[in-house]
Write a protein that binds this DNA or RNA. Sequence first.
DNA 1: CGCTCCGTTGAAACGGTTCAACCCACGTGG
DNA 2: CCACGTGGGTTGAACCGTTTCAACGGAGCG
Lengths: 238, 238
Amino acid sequence: MSLIKSMEMNREVNSLIASAPLFNGLQKSYLQELVAICEPQLLPKGQLVFSEGDKGNGFYLVQSGRVKIYKVSPNGKEQILHIFGEGEPFGEVPVFAGQSFPAHAVSLEKSRLLFFPRQAFIQLIEKYPAMALNMLAVLSRRLRQFTVMIDSLSLKEVPGRLAAYLLYLSKQQDDAKKIELDITKTQLASLLGTIPETLSRMLAKISNQGMVELNGSHIVIIDRPALEDLASLGKMDI
Amino acid sequence: MSLIKSMEMNREVNSLIASAPLFNGLQKSYLQELVAICEPQLLPKGQLVFSEGDKGNGFYLVQSGRVKIYKVSPNGKEQILHIFGEGEPFGEVPVFAGQSFPAHAVSLEKSRLLFFPRQAFIQLIEKYPAMALNMLAVLSRRLRQFTVMIDSLSLKEVPGRLAAYLLYLSKQQDDAKKIELDITKTQLASLLGTIPETLSRMLAKISNQGMVELNGSHIVIIDRPALEDLASLGKMDI
DNA sequence: CGCTCCGTTGAAACGGTTCAACCCACGTGG
DNA sequence: CCACGTGGGTTGAACCGTTTCAACGGAGCG
């Protein structure tokens, strides 16, 4: 690799690390050390990053593209736990809890990742407690997300989960009424803990009831209060 | 409070903090500081510790007794997320992620807790990175547990979750064939994401099929391989 | 062009919940 | 000491939401 290329890459890596929430508020000198220990990876679409049960010797940060984290049932059904995009870390659990990855990870698109080796990263944490606090914040937020997911799976039915997800998407996208599904409906089904057929029917239902308008991956929220009712009640009338 | 009493209490608190996994491997001087910042609490059975949405200004450690962490659906159904016993911390999420508690907490028995105020604890972490690493390990383990729970709820049916829980209990209790439910069956149902009626039927079913023998809260595993099949397949034949 | 992947729709089957009734063990108070 | 209420547990029957299986349409791509 030429020196020019390497410097250019370093600059990219640098800016990503500087902007990732995980490394928020860190001094420049810390960031330099992070750049020094990380290893870039380029993945084609659909590339397996790790499987459930693999030994984890470090964690990853998404530089570009997207990665899904998921579990698989014996009969092949998938449950998506997360879809991570630019600036988000994943695969940290084995770094701190030991043992192996609790789920699978594959790229959804052509993606660039940064890999942080366990030992080197832990040494950094020991030197710089601010980094530890950031990582604690990341894991805590993820725990919070999981409690919501468990709550939904256990206590709400599919229409409720769907409505909650649509409202969540709307909030993400500037509280707009027009929202854009950034994943396929099959993936959305898997994220909501159901199957494409059921999702299709539920979308049709809330569309027929005038809560939303459908247009492929383009959805317009018509009756937000009705969706909010659905999301909190978790049940569908009629 | 008399000086004697106070010293005695301090000794108890001391030994608990020294033995809690969260504070594993810490030097004595650190432990002293922990003792200094924590605030003991005594709870009767059924006492609410915090509710979902409450602002969290610190976390708790169970000194004795047990505490359940749970969510509630609008129609009153409970989903238990954890049941924590002696030496286990809970309520850490708001400490690091900010915001409020993601679930409710009540004591299942008369219990003693230690409360660690957020600010004082964060200052300790900043001074002693080893404590940060321990906390990261705790949160990571909890994330792993949640992935298993989500997997179960989404991909397995009730008999599968029940079998998995029985095997887990057996492993906890020295891999014995005779196991003892340490919670009521209603609570177990809530932990498995179902209702007491369904749990009762499923227990009856696996008992009729000769996999286990039932005797109140006393269960004997007869056919372990069959249970393991159930747990991994998640489906029940016949 | 023909393949595959995604999405949709229908009918039947399944698993779980709901509702209601009932039992039992336990503790309380008359 | 017995009557009574309460909470946990069990059982049956009807009901409901979701999955399964099968068939089909369309978009994208080699």
